[in-house]
Computed example of a mutant assay.
Amino acid sequence: MANQKGGVAKTTTVASLGAALAALGRKVLVVDLDPQGCLTFSLGHNPDRLESSVHDVLTGEVSLREVILPTSEGLSLAPATIDLAGAEAVLLMRPGREFALKRAIATLDGDFDTVLIDCPPSLGVLTLNGLTAADAVLVPLQCETLAHRGVGQLLRTVSEVQQITNPNLQLLGALPTLYDARTTHSRDVLSDVADRYELPVLAPPIPRTVKFAEATASGATVLAGRKSKGAQAYRELARQLTAHWDTGAALETFNPAG
């Protein structure tokens, strides 16, 4: 999951989609690449109390398997701490710095069916590590004015990664988040993004709901609220992605025009 703009429900998407995939029987690992540790906190772990994290993995001090933590959602977590902010400076001094996470994941020897990576809201070395390690990238995009700012830059970065460090990287498309079906504004924003960047807009859109904030505060995901529209949307996305990965089925796209 990548978008250098903050506040687009990227971390919520990683946690909720991961929980939905785990509920379908997949062995899921989520990787927190954001020094703020929001994913780590939202899954019930306090970043300030952890002795080791993804920072230590990227700098070569420990293996990825050594830092993985369990969660109440049935998925595994590679946590982040504020120390991760210093990893960029360390990695910049090393050759092949973009491949640190890819090498770390390779040591897991297929322990997981799916690895979801929560990239930080920037296009620095950490995000490049995420894009280089990934098979595919999904762009969470909030349905608000100026949401597309930075999308072009992100797509250029994805293109450069495809050319240099990860030629097999697939761009799945944009995932609409914070969507309000009652307004034409949300549809107009998505239509603009689809036209401007020729970027597939995936369905279903993730609705704006207070349940996400409540879930994060409780150290769980929105999947705990089975009747939540947000939970239903992530479950449907998980089913589509599973079919896409297992059988090559096409992902459903959202028509902003209705």
Rank of each mutant, 00 (worst) to 15 (best):
M1W: 08
A2D: 03
K5S: 02
V8I: 12
K10T: 13
T13E: 04
S16T: 10
G18W: 00
A20W: 00
A20L: 00
L21N: 02
A23S: 07
L24A: 11
R26A: 06
L29W: 12
L33T: 03
L33D: 01
Q36C: 07
C38T: 15
C38R: 15
C38K: 15
S42E: 10
S42K: 05
S42Q: 05
L43M: 07
G44S: 07
G44M: 01
H45C: 04
N46K: 08
P47T: 13
D48A: 11
R49M: 05
L50R: 01
V54F: 08
D56W: 05
V57W: 02
G60K: 14
E66V: 13
V67P: 00
V67S: 05
V67G: 01
I68F: 10
T71F: 04
E73Y: 08
L77I: 07
A80Q: 04
I82P: 14
L84S: 08
A85Q: 07
A85P: 06
G86Q: 05
G86S: 13
A87R: 01
E88N: 02
E88V: 01
A89V: 15
A89D: 11
M93L: 15
R94D: 12
P95Q: 15
P95T: 14
F99H: 06
K102W: 08
R103P: 09
I105F: 11
I105N: 07
T107N: 03
L108R: 05
D109H: 10
D109S: 09
D111V: 14
D113A: 00
D113V: 02
T114R: 11
V115D: 02
I117P: 00
I117C: 01
D118E: 02
D118T: 03
C119N: 01
P120I: 03
P121M: 08
S122T: 11
G124K: 09
V125A: 10
V125S: 04
L126P: 00
L128A: 09
N129E: 07
G130N: 02
G130S: 09
A134E: 10
V139N: 00
V139W: 01
P140E: 04
L141V: 08
L141I: 13
Q142V: 07
C143W: 00
T145M: 15
L146K: 13
A147D: 02
H148A: 15
H148G: 08
V151E: 12
V151Y: 07
L154Q: 02
L155S: 04
R156N: 12
T157R: 01
N166R: 05
N166M: 03
P167R: 03
Q170D: 14
L172Q: 01
L172H: 02
T177Q: 12
D180M: 04
A181N: 12
H185F: 14
R187F: 11
D188C: 07
D195M: 09
L199V: 00
A203Y: 04
A203V: 05
P204G: 08
P204M: 05
P204W: 04
P204D: 10
K211V: 10
K211F: 13
F212L: 14
F212Y: 10
A213L: 12
A213D: 06
A215C: 03
A217I: 15
A220G: 13
T221Q: 00
A224H: 14
A224S: 14
K227N: 15
G230K: 02
G230C: 01
Y234E: 03
R235H: 14
E236Q: 08
R239E: 15
L241I: 09
A243T: 14
E252R: 08
E252D: 09
